[in-house]
Amino acid sequence: MRAVISVVGRDRPGILAFAANECAVRNINIEDVTQKVLQDLFTMIMIVTIPDDPESFHNFAREIEAAGDAQGLKIHVMHEDIFNAMHTI
C-alpha cells in the first residue's frame, strides 16, 4: 500500500537523511519527497510504498513515530486513501 509520511520539526541538518534511513533499513521504497522550511519549522512529506500486510504497517508506523519523537520530530504515517478521500471529489 502507499502511505504518506509527514515529518514536522525544528529545522536542522540531517532530518531528511534520518527519515530516509528509517525507510531504507526496513526496505521501504520512497517514491516522492517534498519539503519546505517555514520560518524555523521544517515540514516534509514522503510518499512511500509499504507491504500490504497490516502488521508490518503498524510496526513500521509505531517504530518511525517513536524514533521521530526521540529526535524531537513529529512524524505521522498514514494510508494515502485518507488524503484522496478528503481532498478530491
Binding site: V4, V8, D32, T34, I45, F83, N84
Partner: peptide, 9 residues
C-alpha cells in the same frame, strides 16, 4: 497521491 503538501498538512 496527488495532494499538495498543503492538503496533507
Amino acid at each position: 497521491v496527488k495532494q499538495s503538501s498543503d492538503s496533507i498538512l
